[in-house]
Amino acid sequence: MAVIETQGLSKVYVRDVIDTEYGRLRIRLTGRKTVALDNLNLDVNKGEIFGLLGPNGAGKTTTIKILMGIHFASSGTAKIMGKPLGDRAVKSRIGFLPENPYFYDYLKGWEFLDFYGQLYGIDKRKRRAKVEELLALVGLTHAANIPLRGYSKGMNQRIGLAQALMNDPDIVFLDEPQSGLDPLGRKEVRDLILGLRKQGKTVFFSSHILSDAEMICDRVAILFKGKLRSVGRLSELLSSSVTEWEIVLRDVDERFINRWRDRLERVVESEGEWWLISKSQDLTDAIIDAATRDGGKLSALTPRRQSLEDYFISEVKGS
């Protein structure tokens, strides 16, 4: 069942006639329009982790801002849980972490969460318990009484995540949740997102960190210059067949390698071993047969499949 649906969603940003650019006043009569999103059709199913991927300026944040009701779409429609955007009842069932969360930095960690709890209409007793639970979940119990201006980038991201979960949402929108985090922090966020899926929540997140997306997403959509390039399960998008083989040979001489060099993608010699990259199964078999006949030994044979990064780059380059 689709909990997020968009149909022909488009957004054109219009700059003011009198605008400032790089600190200078600029009067602009033409070229004021920028197409940020063009005819986006998406369905996100209940309980899945959906990744919206794309390079900077692809339209990821615009999509999330439209779905959150921060911006209005220029055309097209979207629904969350079957209701039109902006529905107050739906808002109380979704959580949101913006790309660069800005907080009231004079508030302490617990005060900040408590404030959002009040905005969601949670009563005092439940709020206190929820604040404690979330601070523990994101590992900030020790910083509960520190004003947010004393938080590091990673701590800010984690308190932002806690804020997005304050109302125990059914759908969580996370805009670049791993940006600015170190590898450990990224892993914690990954684990948190996987934990949300276990609880039956839907997670819609944007990212350009493809390795993380590949690890946790059930489905992904690739946006480029405001247009949807592809959408689907990773297993559907990425070629399941092997795209290249890595052959490692020992006890073969350079003359043997030179016989095949032209047909190989790459050849590297290292510590008496030859590392060969072949794009064809037949070529791989032939090299191994010939090497064995000539007294050589096969140290390793590694078939390689397409990664999300390979697919992403081919899609973006293709457009």
Binding site: I70, I94, Y102, L119, G121
Partner: peptide, 14 residues
């Protein structure tokens, strides 16, 4: 200017 308004309007606050 600080972007905090965006977070408030995503809450069920008119």
């Amino acid at each position: 200017s600080r972007g905090t308004l965006e977070m408030i309007v995503t809450c069920p606050v008119g």
